[in-house]
Design a protein around this nucleic acid. Structure first.
Lengths: 94, 94
DNA sequence: ATATTTTGGTTTATAATATAAACTAGTTTA
DNA sequence: TAAACTAGTTTATATTATAAACCAAAATAT
């Protein structure tokens, strides 16, 4: 009846992150922090989880002298997001 | 940017319960248990939470000699569900 | 009749999760 | 050169989801 909702995506902050990344070529840590209204700590943890799952790719470099963390959704992440949306629609489309 | 998702509804089991109740006049405990594939314990706890929030009304009676728990969504619950769906669409409609 | 299992739940213990607070390392500004 | 800011990470805490353990009554089997 109801398909399971991927617990990795069924989390407000991780969903917001993925939602943003689905529409962008890539996004910086500070951009995601601002757009999702999250604390740096929370964002850092959730990015790690998405990265560990292989849903996003995180690259650490430098912009001038400052650290720069850049995130990009992976094909696996895109598939997971799409599947999640499909599953979710069973719950909300009545 | 992203509206908050009502944490009471952003839970797989509670969302499934509400989803069912949105389309039914009312539903029995055993029916919800079967349709949501949940354990009785988990279902009982989540129904209490929805009830405490005023999202559903729970009535305990008897069917013959057996206990019967009947659930119904309230106007407040309908509103909350609709608001949740609206908010959620910001995350998934791209 | 009386154990035994089943039904319809509730209560409680545990494990997982989300989140912010505390921290780090380097950089800019006063 | 001290203070404050940037860009994060690590860790502690509080919340949450979930199943296990439990309960009372009813149905079934012996």
């Amino acid at each position: 009846m109801f398909k399971d909702l991927d617990p990795l995506l069924h989390s407000q902050l991780r969903l917001a992150i993925m939602s943003l990344l689905m529409t962008l070529e890539s996004a910086e840590f500070t951009y995601l922090k601002e757009k999702t209204n999250s604390t740096a700590g929370n964002l850092s943890v959730q990015l790690d989880k998405l990265s560990d799952a292989g849903y996003i790719h995180v690259e650490k470099s430098f912009k001038g002298k400052k650290p720069l963390t850049t995130c990009k959704v992976t094909p696996k992440g895109i598939k997971a997001f799409e599947d999640y949306v499909t599953a979710l629609k069973q719950y909300i489309n009545k």
